[in-house]
């Protein structure tokens, strides 16, 4: 069996964030984690090529990049495709998900990827494709690769695929028939008795969780409100006084901007470790548009800009932390009478 493996620029050994704009390219045989996959797959399957694409290039040109990668996969006559694993890397997860979905739908061959459950690629693609659950970091490489290889071989051979728990993939929301030793009525009563006794039980039909917030009514008069700025792009005063982490943030910063008409390379910089900092360091307004908001404030388009901004880094930061930051920030803003917020993300 012939396999094509998809990797980002980092795992594909092209480079770090400065190479995130790399367009799709092909390397012969396995590369980086592909060597481990080849070992796990054994002699019946061979990684014939590795396609590498920069994370920024992919997510900034999703349709075009998908087409180009699909064409490369077709050229190599792949029997199945492996992508990633992407762990908790958001852009990489979106890329792996988009490629696997396109491979399955358009080429009609199996594709498997791996991600940490909080990766945004999971919510976007879990119903369409098989995503093996991995840890948030590369510490989960071997375990993730083993599950991905096993599942991919089964799919390629047309063997029956077990439940998400058995195979290690993230539930796709599909239901399949099976013969249960007990009837539904007796299983339901057993479950109810356990529930009444306070014992643990496993539901057979988990309810989907839709965590959506109803949109608030619009701002009525922009010229009468105070607006605040928040960024997940890691813009901090030069020298990073709060020692904010460059990824997986455990904190956010609140920084005074009352005395600034705009940000400069001298006053501010980015600590974000998930993108090439060259352009943000050159002109931090490219991430936190203070210069323009000062103009709009002067012209009366908004009444006032809140004299502080908040910053953190969004890469690898857990959802729970982000929620906690946002709740604390919102409390602050509400008590100071802020009526609208712009969040910028890289």
């Amino acid at each position: 069996m012939r396999i094509v493996h998809y990797l980002n620029q980092f795992f594909g050994q092209v480079g770090a964030e400065d190479k995130a704009g790399t367009e799709p390219l092909v390397k012969d045989g396995p590369v980086g984690p592909g060597v481990l996959f080849q070992e796990l797959l054994g002699p019946e399957a061979r990684i014939v090529a590795t396609i590498v694409c920069g994370d920024n290039y992919f997510v900034e040109h999703i349709d075009e990049a998908t087409e180009r990668v699909l064409a490369m996969i077709t050229d190599y006559g792949a029997d199945f495709v492996l992508a990633g694993p992407a762990f908790n890397a958001g852009r990489y997860g979106i890329a792996c998900g988009a490629i696997c979905a396109a491979v399955m739908n358009r080429l009609g061959i199996p594709a498997v990827t791996g991600m940490f459950p909080e990766n945004p690629g999971v919510e976007s693609f879990r119903k369409a494709i098989y995503i093996v659950e991995t840890k948030g970091t590369t510490a989960g490489m071997r375990d993730g690769a083993a599950k991905m290889s096993r599942l991919a071989l089964k799919l390629a051979k047309g063997e029956p695929i077990g439940s998400p728990e058995e195979e290690g993939y993230i539930p796709r929301g599909l239901r399949s028939n099976y013969f249960a030793p007990e009837t539904g009525a007796s299983r339901a009563v057993t479950m109810l008795l356990k529930k009444l006794k306070g014992e643990p039980f496993v539901t057979e039909y988990p309810m989907p969780v839709f965590d959506r917030v109803t949109p608030l009514p619009p701002v009525k008069k922009m010229s009468e409100i105070t607006l605040a700025l928040i960024t997940t792009g890691g813009i901090v005063p030069r020298g990073n006084p709060d020692r904010m982490e460059s990824s997986s943030a455990t904190r956010y910063g609140k920084y005074a901007i009352g005395a600034f008409q705009g940000l400069t390379a001298k006053s501010h910089e980015t600590v974000h470790g998930g993108y090439d900092p060259t352009y943000a360091n050159e002109d931090p307004n490219r991430v936190l548009p203070l210069d323009v908001l000062r103009d709009l404030e002067r012209e009366g388009v908004i009444n006032a800009l809140y004299p502080y901004y908040y910053a953190t880094v969004g890469n690898g930061t857990s959802v729970a932390r982000a929620v906690q930051f946002a709740r604390e920030i919102a409390k602050d803003l509400i008590s100071d009478g802020v009526q609208a917020v712009i969040i910028t993300s890289t």
Binding site: P215, A326, A330, L333, I334, I342, I343, S345
Partner: peptide
């Protein structure tokens, strides 16, 4: 974060 700020009651726009 955009969702949580909006949940807390402040209309929020995400430029991303």
């Amino acid at each position: 974060m955009a969702k949580e700020i909006e949940r807390a009651g402040i209309p929020t726009v995400h430029i991303c």
